[in-house]
Design a protein around this nucleic acid. Structure first.
Lengths: 131, 131
DNA sequence: CCTTGACCTTCCTATCATGGGAAGGTTTAT
DNA sequence: ATAAACCTTCCCATGATAGGAAGGTCAAGG
């Protein structure tokens, strides 16, 4: 299969497939005489694996680990779970940060009249007023 | 004040201050004969404003708008509120995405034994098994 | 057989908001 | 006078892509 066809069946754009190869996430694809990349079923499975992992927010570095564990028959599920746990932890931290922004902003926006006048608690907060 | 002193009092590193000037968020600072940037109180207020806005997760583009509104005596609070509302909306979407990742992952991790054996529902999910 | 269009290739650039560091000039303090 | 602590600009790096230019290749139709 050509890269374009693989892109279609995996929903991973050709550009991204080349990028994954470049950073070593995928092993270099075989080439035709003309230099075209050629892919087999294994590559397609790998790309789907990567796509799903990306969908769960894993970084490339984490996916690299997960791919290695996936291929490793001798893996322990504990190792996989550790990668996931670390990612969950990061996600929760991020969510907490974003949520606290939302809380503050919603609070301020709620107190804002949203009319034609210039007075605004949002601006006041950013300005540093100790209201 | 020199850039280093401003960095200290605003908690915004000199590097970042120069960057803000470069992208037009701050007006170009005055210079000494030797080319050193010189800042006044107004700049310090602006930098604190930017720092607080960044802390609430606003993008540079949004902060640019907010700065303009801040300076604009004729602003309507509705405009400010609109910027905030749009940001809140984006944040909530992001939080929703991250939370759904956490939910999926926590569920999978929960089902994972985390022992020495290779069997792992996390890997199975990424692999695409219809378990 | 030749052209056209749809592919493919590599390479360069941009994003966003920074951080790091090199090379070189200035100021301050001892 | 010299050393330390500043400052300047410039270039490169991040992560995970997207966009596009320049050029080679392949399949189909006239």
């Amino acid at each position: 299969m050509n890269i374009g066809q693989v892109a279609k069946v995996t929903s991973v754009p050709a550009k991204r497939i080349r990028y994954y190869e470049q950073i070593g996430l995928l092993k270099p694809a075989q080439r035709t005489d003309a230099g075209y990349r050629v892919y087999g079923d294994g590559d397609i499975h790998s790309l789907r694996f990567i796509r799903r992992a990306r969908g769960l927010g894993f970084s490339m570095a984490q996916i690299s680990k997960l791919l290695a564990l996936w291929q490793d028959q001798c893996r322990s599920s504990a190792e996989v779970k550790a990668v996931a746990a670390s990612h969950i932890k990061e996600l929760k931290i991020k969510i907490g940060e974003l949520q606290s922004m939302v809380d503050t902003l919603a609070n301020l926006a709620d107190q804002c009249d949203g009319d034609d006048r210039p007075d605004c608690p949002i601006i006041a907060e950013l300005q540093g007023d100790k209201s």
